[in-house]
Structure formats: structure tokens, C-alpha cells
Design a protein around this nucleic acid. Structure first.
Length: 715
RNA sequence: GGCGAGGUAGCUCAGUUGGUUAGAGCACAGGAUUCAUAACCCUGAGGUCACGAGUUCAAAUCUCGUUCUCGCUACCA
């Protein structure tokens, strides 16, 4: 394979609305960092970009909630996240932010370019509008009951309780978070990216060219999208937080956050170029540049479908690969910051690294374990016990112990110096060791080029294991007892120690992409400069010069104690319990903890007052369910035949998860009889059945207290 | 409901185009050793490859069906 002229490596822009957890780290940042460190050791021309994603609707919402400004929020989290990455050895060449003027300018120009060439369409649709606040409501500004889990405070784009992605239309009882009023629908015009125009391109590029060299999950997901029929996607929103739409008619509108965020990779590159007096253009325009996006699986569609279309239209290069990782779970459950079930990078840093017995070594311990269980092909699971086992059992016992016993022996048996080689006593074991180092280097190189970081790291540990075996076989501590009687003993000791020392130097080079702090410390022990860590030096056995005296032994890592693990587990459970109580007391479902006062804070904010005439428009009737069956290909819909006395109608209701069809036949219910018909799943529904819902999401029919004639009016 | 990815030893995972007794690490058991952070080294035990059919001389691998987990997506008037 031809070596690319240069590389542009990106890691997903973290959203600057809070702390990021180790799942994020394992998903995108750590693999990206390993790859970049490897490339740099290969002396390749590479730029590693990242930055805070600071737009989107969640941030101003959060600001309102916390009584502060959007700017204050991003100004709070941007530096923390940036520092967290630094503390964990994630070495971006630039950590930029999308609120920077340079980014606004870059994103603006990008949009204008596409718009001027007719690559965007405009479309007028109805969107939720808050009359009191006189503004359109972005997804995040609408709250309501989650249709999936019945959580009372789901947002228009996602329910934070069950994590389901939503659209505002799906919410039950939508309410504006600005005024507390129910929103109305109003027309608005937006720009769209017509993905449907690029189906052929995507098919060819993804499904033909990259069918075999991209990860199956990535290709599978893309295929699913393409086969499902590509739709134009809105690229603007009615909002005032973000990059202003820079063309006529764009007043009061900003670029949709997903449109502007990936452009952040480009503006970050520009900023890097300015800082380093370089030209950014080849990194995004020259086909000889290899572009790789590191992301989590939730980002696949944006990076593999939408952004590539944007790049193609704008005349940029396309990603060579998008090695998306799956998710990392924690102790048997999904990681979630809002539920308190996660390990924040910031917490880990404060608890483990910035402690007396911590330090950079503990950063490498986390890197080691996260990479060892990286969810490269399927979801994986972080357990504190697993962390302890991996660190104590492999990193300390195999790797660090080899280095330590080498150092101790070297000081005991060869005066703390690199001994000379006695060629006449070299044997097959010595040759095998050298050969193994060379082979391992090749293996690791191949694995890294294939984004198989977990396997690559395993090979390094294996090489250290081989070192232990080599030393065990040579037994220099036994030979040392015979130095006086056996004239060859010292020579054999020298050869063994020489081999072990050169192996250590090689281990430092090979472990460097994964555990940079450790590699640095090993350089310190060996008294060599960092340049020794260049990849081309791996496989050489003359890295440490004969006669050179090295530093006294020093442990690379400490062991993780049982009590520390127990404390973390206790903390995790305490956090989750605390968050749970908080959620239950602050959200709309007090009944979960106090069933007697179910309406303490109300299921939803009271809707705005209406006049009697408004009410009079609604024709409520008593109906009797005479038939009920499940709608095919729908999980939640029941098709009901309801007798209204004067006629029988088909009414669809989303209650299939709560009631079995046979159990509700004969039930009398309240019907909105004059609601406009609506087609769902191909069946027309003429009316609506009223349901009451309790705090736990359980549904109840609203029925007359005694049997009454079907069709009776309700007022 | 549709689509995608998974289900392999107690745990975490490998298994290339179907080819002898299905691999590794951890954990476990036994042995050996003491230079080393009770570390290392050797040996061992362990799996109906989710389940059921089919294709084949031969299936963890290919086909179909069933089932479970995760993700995306549709349905809630």
C-alpha cells in the first residue's frame, strides 16, 4: 500500500454542555490518539484535530434552566474538556471551538458556496411556534411526555430517561419550555440538503469501493440508510444560537448544529495552520491526503453519508475510513451521565491521577484497560474488577515487572551498565528473541494500519511476556552464583542482560502509541531522548550503547488495591441512587415516590386558558368497543371498531403495549367524535379515544361510571 | 414492524476464501522458582461454537427458520 503524503485525523467534537465520560474516550478519542501517535512515530505528516461543539439547542436551554447564558456554559466546559483530554494524554494538534469567529466564517462560506451553486433546496413547512415568546421552537425547546417510556419531561429530539431519539411531533402534550404554553404550528422556510440527489454517488463510494475495507457495522448502517431512501435534510433552524444563515431570508435562522459541527474539523485545521504557519488547504483538498474520522456508532450517518456529501459538493476530499466504535457499557448497564451511571473523565482524573499515589501512570492504566476492551466490533463492558485485573495482571505483572526485574538485575549483575555482547556465546534463544521483536513490530504495524488497536496492544504485552520467558530460561541469577567457578558465566549474564535491555528499549517504542506517559518514563530510565521512540528504531538491538550507565530501578506502575475498586463501585451506586431521587423529585412523576398525591406537580404544565366556545367545538361521545385487533407491522397501534350508536367507526389507538385486544372488547370509552380523520399505517382513523395516564405511564380508559347508551354526548 | 450488528470456555474476546483433536488472555487447579510489584515460568482442567433444520465427503464458518441482546427507524390524533 502506498504511503499517503499527509494525514488529517479527526475525533468527534464533544458537545460542550457537560463533562464527558470514559465511554466517549474509548469510542473516539483514545483510538484516534493511538493512531496519531503511531503515525507521528512513523514521521508522517499528520494533523490531529478536535474541538468543542458549542452550538445546538441544548446549550441555550440548559442556560435558561441554570439561570445563566449559553456563552457561560460553553466557556465553562470547553476548557475543562480540553484539560481532561490533556491529562489523559490525548494529544490533539489543535483543540478548537465552534463558537470561534474563524469557525463561523468557515461554516458561513461553506453554506454560501453550496447555496450559490444550487446544491441546497428551500422548503416551507409547519413547525411548532411559541406565540408568547414569538419564536419558532427548536426540538430541544419542546417538552412533553415520551411516547416510548412515558417520561414526562422528554425533549423534542430525545428522551433523556430512556435515551430514545424523538421528533417534536412524537411528543404527547407538547409544551414550550420558554413560556410553558402549548405551541401552535406555523409555517417557516428552511434550507435542505437534498441527499436524494447523491444516492448514486453514495452507493458507488460506500457500497462498492468501501464494502470490504470499512467495518461491517459502519457499512451496514450506511446501507440501511441508502436502501431506506434518502430524504432531503434541513440544514437550518429557527434559533439564534449558532452560525447565522448568511444568505437572504436567513434572518433569525442559524445553521443546524450537525451541519456546522463537522465543518469544525476544517476550521480547526485552519486555526492550526495559522498557529503553526502552515497551509491548511492540502489537508482538505489534496487527494493524496488521507482523511480519517474517529467516532462512536451514534455518529455513523453524519460522517459516512451527510458530511461526505457536503465535502463532495464543496470540492473537498472524502474520508478514507471512518472506524466507528460501538458502545462501552459499565457494570452491566448502559453508561449515562444523566442517570449517574458513568465514570466522567474529570472524576477519574481527580480521583486517580491527581493523587499522591497516582500520577501519569494512572492515566496510562486507564488507557490500557479502555483499549484492551475497546468496543471495536461489538459493545463491550467496563467493570472495575476488569480494570484491576487488566492493570495488575498484565500491565504490572507482565510488562512493568519485566522492565523492573531487568533493571534490578542489571544493577546487581552488570554494574548498572549496558553490558557488551559476547558473540561466541550467543545461542538460538538470543536469535529467537531478536527475530520475535522484528516480527512483533511488523504485526503491530499491520494491526495499527487496520485500526485494530486492541489486538496491537495485546501484541506488545505478548512481547514483554516473551521477555519474561527468555529471562526465565537464561536464569542470570543462577549464573551469578557460579561466576567464580565458571569462566563463561559472566559472558552469558552479559548476553542475557543485553538482550533484556534492548528488548526494553523496543518495548518502549512499541508501547508508546498506547501508553505515552509510560514510554516517556522508560526513556527516562534508559537515559535516552524521546527521539529514540521513532518507529523505525523498533526491531533494532543496538538502541542502548554498550557501557552506557542507566538509572536505578523505578516502578512504572503501582497495583490497584481491592479497597479502591470497592470504593469506586460504592460511589457509582451512590451516584446513581442520588440521581434517581433527584429525577423523581424534580420531574413530573411524583407518584413514583408518593402514590397518594399523584398530581402534586402535575403530569404536564397547564395548557393556556381557552374560552367556552373553544371547548364547545369538541364533540365528545361515549362509544363502545366492539372489535379490536393489532395493526400489522406496528408495535403500538390497535385497530378498534367503535359503536357510536348512530354509526360504527374504525379508530386507531396507540395502546397496544398496554392492552390486549380481547380484553377491551365491550369496554365503554370516551371518543373525540369530530376529530379530522388521520391515516396511520395505511388505515384511516376517525376519532380519538381519550386515555388517562398515571405517573408510571400506565394507561386507563376514561369511561362512564355506569353502562350508558353508545353515542351519548359528554359535556 | 423494517433494517443493521451481535450471541464461541466462568469472564473478556479471536477465529481469514467451509478442511485434522475450535484458539488467546484473565480467573481457577497443580508444579517449579526466587532476580522481580506474593510478581515470573511450566503444566492442566473447560466449549452440543444461542436453538432447529438444510446444502456438503466435510459447517462456528454457507442457506432457511426460531430465539435473545444492542443500535437505527416506523407506528401513538
Amino acid at each position: 500500500m502506498k504511503t499517503p503524503k499527509r494525514y488529517l485525523i479527526s475525533a468527534a467534537l464533544p458537545y460542550a454542555n457537560g463533562l464527558k465520560h470514559i465511554g466517549h474516550l474509548a469510542g473516539a478519542y483514545l483510538p484516534a490518539d493511538i493512531y496519531v501517535r503511531y503515525l507521528k512515530a512513523q514521521k508522517r505528516d499528520v494533523v490531529f484535530v478536535c474541538g468543542s461543539d458549542e452550538h445546538g439547542t441544548a446549550i441555550p436551554i440548559q442556560a435558561t434552566k441554570e439561570g445563566t447564558t449559553a456563552q457561560a456554559i460553553i466557556d465553562k466546559y470547553h476548557p475543562i474538556i480540553e484539560q481532561n483530554f490533556k491529562d489523559l494524554g490525548i494529544a490533539f494538534d489543535i483543540y478548537h471551538r465552534t463558537s470561534d469567529p474563524l469557525h463561523h466564517q468557515t461554516a458561513s462560506e461553506f453554506f454560501k458556496d453550496l447555496e450559490s451553486r444550487g446544491d441546497l433546496e428551500t422548503k416551507t413547512t409547519e413547525q411548532y411556534f411559541d406565540q408568547q415568546a414569538n419564536t419558532f421552537l427548536a426540538d430541544r425547546y419542546i417538552k412533553g411526555t415520551c411516547p416510548n417510556c412515558s417520561h414526562g419531561e422528554a425533549y423534542g429530539d430525545q428522551c433523556e430517561k430512556c435515551g430514545k431519539s424523538l421528533s417534536p411531533e412524537e411528543l404527547i402534550n407538547p409544551v414550550s419550555t420558554l413560556s410553558g404554553n402549548a405551541p401552535i404550528k406555523k409555517e417557516t422556510t428552511h434550507w435542505y440538503l437534498p441527499l436524494n440527489r447523491h444516492e448514486d454517488f453514495l452507493r458507488k463510494w460506500l457500497l462498492e469501493q468501501h464494502a470490504n475495507d470499512w467495518r461491517p457495522a459502519v457499512i451496514g448502517q450506511c446501507k440501511s440508510w441508502i436502501e431506506g431512501g434518502l430524504q432531503p435534510r434541513a440544514v437550518t433552524r429557527d434559533l439564534d444560537w449558532g452560525v447565522k444563515v448568511p444568505v437572504a431570508g436567513g434572518d433569525g435562522k442559524v445553521l443546524y448544529v450537525w451541519f456546522d459541527a463537522p465543518i469544525g474539523y476544517i476550521s480547526a485545521t485552519k486555526q492550526w495552520a495559522i498557529n503553526n504557519d502552515k497551509d491548511w488547504k492540502p489537508y482538505w483538498n489534496d487527494p493524496e491526503t488521507k482523511l480519517v474520522h474517529f467516532i462512536g456508532k451514534d455518529n455513523i450517518v453524519f460522517h459516512c453519508i451527510i458530511f461526505p456529501v457536503m465535502l463532495k459538493l464543496h470540492g473537498n476530499i472524502l474520508p478514507e475510513n471512518v472506524p466507528a466504535n460501538e458502545f462501552m457499557n459499565l457494570e452491566g448497564d448502559k453508561m449515562s451521565t444523566s442517570r449517574g451511571w458513568s465514570i466522567e473523565m474529570d472524576d477519574y482524573i481527580n480521583k486517580w491521577i491527581k493523587k499522591e499515589n497516582g500520577g501519569e501512570a494512572l492515566a496510562d492504566c486507564l488507557r490500557f484497560y479502555l483499549n484492551a476492551i475497546a468496543p471495536e466490533s461489538k459493545d463491550s463492558e467496563f467493570t472495575w474488577k476488569g480494570f484491576q485485573d487488566a492493570v495488575n495482571g498484565e500491565l504490572v505483572s507482565i510488562f512493568a515487572n519485566f522492565v523492573n526485574r531487568t533493571w534490578v538485575l542489571m544493577h546487581k549483575l552488570t554494574k548498572g551498565k549496558v553490558p557488551k555482547i559476547h558473540i561466541e556465546y550467543l545461542d538460538d534463544d538470543d536469535n529467537a528473541l531478536l527475530l520475535a521483536v522484528k516480527e512483533t513490530k511488523e504485526k503491530i504495524t499491520t494491526l495499527l494500519e487496520q485500526y485494530k488497536f486492541r489486538d496491537a496492544q495485546f501484541e506488545v504485552i505478548n512481547l514483554a511476556r516473551l521477555g519474561n520467558q527468555y529471562m526465565q530460561k537464561k536464569e542470570p541469577w543462577i549464573l551469578a552464583k557460579n561466576v567464580d567457578t565458571d569462566p563463561t558465566a559472566q559472558a552469558k549474564i552479559d548476553n542475557c542482560m543485553h538482550g533484556c535491555l534492548q528488548l526494553t528499549a523496543n518495548l518502549a517504542i512499541l508501547i508508546n502509541p498506547f501508553l505515552p506517559f509510560t514510554a516517556k518514563k522508560m526513556c527516562h530510565l534508559m537515559k535516552v531522548v524521546d527521539r529514540m521512540l521513532e518507529w523505525e528504531n523498533a526491531g533494532k538491538f543496538d538502541l542502548l550503547k554498550v557501557g552506557y550507565s542507566l538509572r536505578p530501578p523505578e516502578l512504572l506502575f503501582r497495583k490497584i488495591e481491592d479497597e479502591e475498586i470497592a470504593a469506586e463501585l460504592a460511589q457509582l451506586n451512590a451516584n446513581a441512587a442520588a440521581k434517581k431521587i433527584k429525577m423523581e423529585t424534580t420531574n413530573t412523576n411524583p407518584a413514583a415516590s408518593n402514590a397518594d398525591q399523584a398530581n402534586e406537580s402535575g403530569i404536564a404544565t397547564l395548557k393556556p386558558e381557552i374560552v367556552f366556545d373553544d371547548f364547545g367545538k369538541i364533540d365528545l361521545r361515549v362509544g363502545t368497543i366492539i372489535e379490536a385487533k393489532k395493526v400489522e407491522k406496528a408495535d403500538k397501534l390497535l385497530e378498534l371498531l367503535v359503536d357510536l350508536g348512530f354509526e360504527q367507526r374504525t379508530i386507531l389507538s396507540g395502546i397496544a403495549m398496554h392492552f390486549k385486544p380481547e380484553d377491551i372488547v365491550g369496554k365503554q370509552v370516551t371518543i373525540v367524535a369530530n376529530l379530522a380523520p388521520r391515516k396511520m399505517r395505511g388505515i384511516e382513523s376517525k376519532g380519538m379515544i381519550l386515555m388517562a395516564e398515571d405517573a408510571k405511564g400506565k394507561l386507563y380508559f376514561v369511561s362512564p361510571s355506569e353502562a350508558i347508551a353508545s353515542g351519548s354526548t359528554i359535556a
